[in-house]
Amino acid sequence: MPTMPADAAVRAAPQAPERRWRRRHVVAAVLVVGWLLIGVLGPFLAPYDPDRTSLTADSVPPFPPGPEHLFGTDQLGRDLLSRLLHGLRTSLLVALAIRLLTMLLGVAVGLAAAEVPPFAGRVLIRVADVFLALPPLLVALTITAVLGPSLPTVTLAVVAIGWPEVARLTYAEARRLRATDYVEAARALGGTRLQVVGRHLLPALAPQLAVAFSVGLPGAIMYEAGLSFFGLGVQPPDASLGTLIAEGRSFVVPAPWMLVVPVAALAVVVVSLNIAGDLLVPPDPRRRLRLL
């Protein structure tokens, strides 16, 4: 077999020298937790009020980077560094919420599909397939149009397009585990279905679910940025990486820093979270993130 299915990858990992395996996990955890910390603490480091404008009839921003404004200002004279730090928080926290909810819904559907009678299970998985066939961006845009632009809406929209993949993964793993001896034994010892799921199946799945959670983080950030770019996420004057990029886009000629700063921040976050994901599980082409 030339490719490594996701489950095989995780099972294979412990076969590597134990210490190296641990180190990879530690580095990955540091990357993920580090970014989350920056997200939470960043705003406290912001030198200015991110919403404070300085545009008047006599003083017309955007001002380039300098000692006063490290990353320059936007067209309303707001400090870009402060906006970036606040925007990063929004983006990271939304990404976190997206992944948590996606996992919750995906795992619930996946486990349900594995535990209900086979026919019903197949129907549930087909529902996931239907969602996978829909163009993600258009569906997300339509959902935000239905619910009105806001952060919770964007979170829901991205969850709606992300859960099927988690459901399929959970379903496959749960079915594999069900066939293993110890789950069969637990069942034979008289555990109810819920007990077996709660005490045995979920704990056995936990490491992989944790991995799936982290692997999806960069994608969630990209999606949030994408939808916010369309003005569907965080509402002005609050910022996120997506809204900063959108604002910078039209000023790329007179004020390139307005675009370069948030794009660079996005690239750094996404690259480092991707690396964290790769450290946890070798990349699998079949599980490529669906791009917007």
């Binding site: 675009l259 996005l266 690239a267 690396i275």
Partner: peptide, 10 residues
């Protein structure tokens, strides 16, 4: 990595 993280419009 960069090719994956640069926004398409850029």
């Amino acid at each position: 990595a960069l090719s994956l993280c640069l926004p398409l419009f850029a």
